[in-house]
Each structure stands twice: as structure tokens, then as C-alpha cells.
Nucleic acid binder design. Structure first.
Lengths: 211, 211
DNA sequence: GTCTATATGCTGATAGAC
DNA sequence: GTCTATCAGCATATAGAC
């Protein structure tokens, strides 16, 4: 159960990428934070800094991808779930002193025009968020194209809002983004029917792995 | 009319910040791109790299802040203007090969947790976008709080969509973000009245500097 | 104000003992 | 698989001639 050298390198890299970005993080800095000698980095990641960063971003990407359904599932009605998820993120980021939560978006903005290999990894990670999010919304009763439109909008709004909220030190962008996506959801969804009808599945909880 | 040394430094810095980010851009690189000797940089900007970057970001920020009303003004109805502006941005970014347009958002994400002085400059720039955008929407008939809610959402959505579109090499995020903000606008605006009524001014062109 | 030469430290990466 | 010593190159910044 003790963390391996490889895992400690990845964990330290995720932390540093969040705060300092890709160019701003040095390999020496990573090995010191991980408590690992230089040579071990190049033993486990012969490709050096880009390969280690890719592994770290993939790890963080998977973790944060799972967070989206986790935040939305408690709410029976998606109309409540979406703004609640943005509000939760707003509370979290304010509590933690406006520190970055996930390195994917910030590193993506930094390297999209300058590090082709890393850009492709990030496109893969964000593509997985969109694919998984689409499947989740489909599992909650939305048509596939509506589901995709919604998750693309949500990821977009979240990433933009994180940058603005961190920079302005205000929850306003995250909360405004949540309200905007809520409006888009209301527009995409058929009008809510109070009692019964053919659309009854929409807005109900449909847990991922149940019968 | 020939560009001054100072101006050439700022222009070169804007270009490099867009593509390589703050940590990824070296001062040597800047002076070479500007065709200026090292010493001149520290003559004009005694504060070195951070001071030069701040000046460059302020310049770019002013330019891009003016772009927002410019894109929206041609459309008599804001319901058309907002999605059209996002679509215009989508066309532009695809044509130019998915290159970053404005360094403000990407540098903000990069340095918000690591360069306090620069973060404050960026907060000032984005704050000005929001203040000016609010004033613009008020000039087009919206109440102040509605106007602010709208411009915060638009800037948030734009910044997030730029990162996603550049990374995924797809206009989908920009177009989806435009539709989302259009939905939010429709929700914020009173229902459109086909003929006449007390809300007739909303959605009409109200040029900035006319009588 | 302009420009050259240089100082000092850090960068990613490697060789090779253990 | 772990760790040390070290490389060549680039980073930001400065001193001082012109």
C-alpha cells in the first residue's frame, strides 16, 4: 500500500502542474517534491518531462471526469443538479483559497499551440470527459445529441469559470456560468410535466450500475 | 509613425505570450523577436519580465475589450448578436489554424496561483471587460444587474470555449457556448413582443455615441 | 537611449557507480 | 531499480562603454 516511486512522481507532478503550469514546473522541482532522485524520473519515464506530464494529466483527468456524474447524481431533477454542481465548485474553490483544482484546463490553454504531443493527450482527456458525460446524460433520459450539447457546454463553462474565478477571486463567474447552463438545460429539455406522461424518466435518478 | 522600441517590445511580447505563455516565453526570445538589444528592455521596463508582461497584457486587454461591442453592435436584436459573435469567433479561430487569439485568458490560468502581481493586473483587465460590457448592454436597454450577469457569462463562456476549441481543434465548444449564452439571454430578457409595448427599446440598436 | 559582454543560477537530460 | 555527479545550454538580470 506504500506509494511507489512512480506514483509519487505522478502525484507531485499533478500538484505542481496545477499551481505552476507546464513551463513553470521544473523536473528538479518535481523530484524534490516527490522525494525521488533525478535518475529515477528518467528510469520510469524515459521520455522525460513531456511523458511524465502526460501521465500526470491522464491521472488527474480520469479523477476529475468521475467527479461530474458524482456531483450530479444526488439530484433527481437535472434542472437542480446542474446549478448545484457549479455552486459546489464555487464553494470549494473559495474555501481552498482560489487555488486551481484540476491542471487539465490550464495546461491545455498553455500548451495547445506550442506542445503538439501534449495537446493531443489533453484532447484525448477532454474527449473522454465529453464521451462519458454524454453517456451519463443519456442514462438520465436525454437524447444523445442533447446530452452531448449539454456536456460540451458544461465543461466549457466550468473551465472558463475556473480561470475567471481564480483570477478575480470571486465566485461570481462560477455561479453565473451555472445559471447559464441551467437556462440552456431548461431550453433543451421538454417542459416539465407535473404528474405523469411519456417523459417521466427525464429528471429521475438513474444510477449508473444498477439493474 | 515608426514604431518605438517600447512598442515593438510590447507587440512582440503579446505575440509570444499568446503562443508560449508566460513561463514559456524568455526575455531573450522577446528581444530577438522585437529586434531590440537586451539592455533596452531593462531601460524601458526596469521591472523586467513581469513589468513588460503586464504592459503587454494591458495593451492586448484593451484591444480585445473593444472587440466585444464591435461584434455585437451590427445586430439590432441581442438574441441574434450573441450567438453570431460566438460563431464569428469560431470561424476566425478555425481559419487561423486554432491559434490563440488573446493572451489574457491563458496567462490568467497559468499565473493566477503563482504570480500575485500579474494576477492582479489580469483581474483589473478582466474587471474592465466586465464593467465596459455591462455599460454596453445597459446602453442597449438591459437593466444593470441583467447586463452584468450576461457579460460575466459571455466572457466566461468565451474563455472556456477558446481553450477547448484550441485543444480539440473543433468549433463545437465555441458554437455550443454561443447557444448556451443565447438561451441565458432569452431567459433574462422579457418575452419578445411582436408589435409594440412598453419594452420596445430592448433589442434595438442603441449606438454608443449617438444623440 | 542604445548596445555588448558577461554574471549567476537553473533547465532538461545523461553517464555510470552501486 | 536507485542514486550521485555532472553536462551543455538557456534563464533573468546587470555593468558599463558608447
Amino acid at each position: 500500500m506504500s506509494t511507489s516511486t512512480r506514483d509519487r512522481l505522478i502525484t507531485a507532478t499533478v500538484e505542481l502542474l496545477r499551481v505552476r503550469g507546464y513551463s513553470g514546473t521544473g523536473v528538479k522541482q518535481i523530484t524534490v517534491a516527490a522525494g525521488v532522485p533525478m535518475g529515477s524520473l528518467y528510469h520510469h519515464f524515459p521520455g522525460g518531462k513531456p511523458e511524465l506530464a502526460a501521465a500526470a494529466l491522464r491521472t488527474a483527468g480520469i479523477a476529475y471526469g468521475q467527479l461530474i456524474p458524482l456531483l450530479l447524481t444526488p439530484y433527481p431533477d437535472l434542472r437542480d443538479a446542474v446549478p448545484a454542481a457549479f455552486a459546489a465548485a464555487a464553494g470549494q474553490i473559495e474555501e481552498t483559497g482560489w487555488i486551481n483544482m484540476c491542471p487539465v484546463g490550464t495546461v491545455a490553454g498553455e500548451v495547445a499551440d506550442s506542445e503538439p504531443a501534449l495537446r493531443e493527450v489533453l484532447a484525448e482527456i477532454i474527449g473522454a470527459w465529453i464521451a462519458d458525460g454524454t453517456a451519463y446524460f443519456v442514462s438520465r433520459g436525454l437524447p444523445a445529441d442533447t446530452a452531448r450539447e449539454l456536456i460540451v457546454g458544461i465543461v466549457t463553462a466550468l473551465e472558463g469559470a475556473f480561470v475567471l474565478s481564480r483570477t478575480l477571486r470571486s465566485t461570481e463567474p462560477l455561479l453565473a456560468a451555472g445559471r447559464a447552463m441551467s437556462a440552456r438545460l431548461a431550453q433543451l429539455l421538454p417542459a416539465p410535466e407535473p404528474e405523469t406522461g411519456p417523459r417521466h424518466a427525464i429528471g429521475r435518478v438513474v444510477p449508473h450500475l444498477d439493474t
